[in-house]
Amino acid sequence: MTTRIGVVTFPGSLDDHDARRAVRLAGGEPVALWHRDRDLKQVDAVVLPGGFSYGDYLRCGAIARFSPVMESVVEQARGGMPVLGICNGFQVLCESHLLPGALTRNDHLHFICRDQRLKVENAGTAWTSDYTEGQEITVPLKNGEGGFVADERTLDELESEGRVVFRYLGSNPNGSRRDIAGITNAAGNVVGLMPHPEHAVEPLTGPTTDGLGFFTSVLKKLVQA
C-alpha cells in the first residue's frame, strides 16, 4: 500500500501542485485536501504549502488557521501525525500554535527570491531523517514575511531542545532571529520552514534535488510505523 500524503489547498495557495509532485517523485501518493473540508481522507501526513492563503489578509496564515481543514490538521498533529509547513504553511503552523514564534516582514522590506544554503541542525524529525546533522543543502527561498521572531526565552528553549531544524548559511535573508530558517515541535512530527524544499526535487526545475529528502524521510518513517 502506498503512503498517502495530503497537500492542503487554501484560496491563494501557490505551491500545492509542486508539493504534490514532490510527494509523487519521492514515491508517495499525493492526496489533494481542500480548505473547507474537515475530512483528511485518511492521509498519513499533511503538507501545508506555500502561497498567500486568504490573500495574507490580517496576517499571513491568520485566517487559514480557522479554516475547517485546519481543525482536523491541528487535532491530528497533536496526536502525532507528521505535518510539514512550507513558507505560508510555516506561517499557518505558527498562527495555529502548533509551532512557537511568528513570521514578520523581512527586515529590509524586500521580497526575496534566491537559492538559499541551509544547514541541517536536526536530522531526527519526521521530515529530516534522510539528512545528516550538519549537512548543507540548497533550496529556493521566496518570501516577503519570513523573519522568524520569538521572545528570548522561547529562542533559548528551541536551541537547548535541539528544535532549530534549519539555519540560514551566508547572509541572513530576512532578519530571522539567530538565523533560524525552520523549527520543529517537541515531538518532532511538526516541522515548519520558510525555504521551499518542494521546488528542489528534480534537476530540470530546481537548483538541486536537496529537497527530496523531506519527502523520502517522512515516507520511510510512515512505512516503519
Binding site: 514578520t104 516582514r105 527586515d107 529590509h108 522590506l109 521572531v149 521572545d151 532578519g175
Partner: peptide, 14 residues
Amino acid sequence: MLKPEILDPQGQAV
C-alpha cells in the same frame, strides 16, 4: 500594535 521589542521595518521606512 507590534510589541515595542519587535522590529517594525514598515514604520522605519515611513
